[in-house]
């Protein structure tokens, strides 16, 4: 398992190769990449700043990955989350999950993203033509995380 919180960009292809390099037991890798959009809630977004809680982000993400590993039979997991100033089109987050079969990888990748959205201490601030604003948490994100408890 590897979790990285960093300011710089990441290369999805390189990370995927690194996750599987030299292994012959991996049958599936599921990936999620989150990007900055140029619109949100009906307004144009020219720039985004991601604030985080430096001491807590790493351990919160490791805890979420640990829950996924306890729940599914996974071979490896990588989470990379950026902070700082980002522009539309920039990558924000990467989740890679490898397993023997696709079911575990797909489920764990979605689980990690759902809990990252509600449990990892990051906050987005958007620059719009009307000034800058903090992004509001969505109820749909809370519901997405809660539905795993019923499963």
């Amino acid at each position: 398992m590897s979790v990285r919180v960093q300011e710089q960009d990441f290369d999805v292809g390189r990370e995927l190769v690194a996750l599987t390099d030299g292994r012959v037991d991996v049958g599936a890798v599921a990936s999620f990449v989150g990007l900055v959009r140029d619109r949100n809630d009906g307004q144009g977004v020219s720039e985004m700043t991601l604030e985080h809680y430096p001491g807590m982000t790493q351990s919160a993400l490791e805890d979420i990955v640990g829950q996924a590993q306890a729940r599914w039979d996974l071979l490896d997991v990588l989470v990379v989350h950026r902070y700082g100033r980002l522009m539309p089109g920039d990558k924000i987050v990467l989740v890679l999950v490898s397993s023997a079969h696709r079911g575990e990888a797909f489920s764990a990748c979605e689980f990690i993203m759902d809990f990252l959205k509600t449990g990892a201490p990051f906050w987005k601030k958007e620059a719009t033509p009307q000034g800058s604003r903090w992004v509001d948490a969505r109820d749909s994100d809370t519901e997405a995380a809660q539905r795993w408890e019923a499963k």
Binding site: G55, M56, L116, T118
Partner: peptide
Amino acid sequence: AAVNQRMAEAATPVRDGDEVAFFPPVTGG
């Protein structure tokens, strides 16, 4: 709220030397 960098509830104890953080709902990802 978080106490010593773990999510906390109203009943979570606060002790000498603790780091206590307050923040709005998170919006990463």
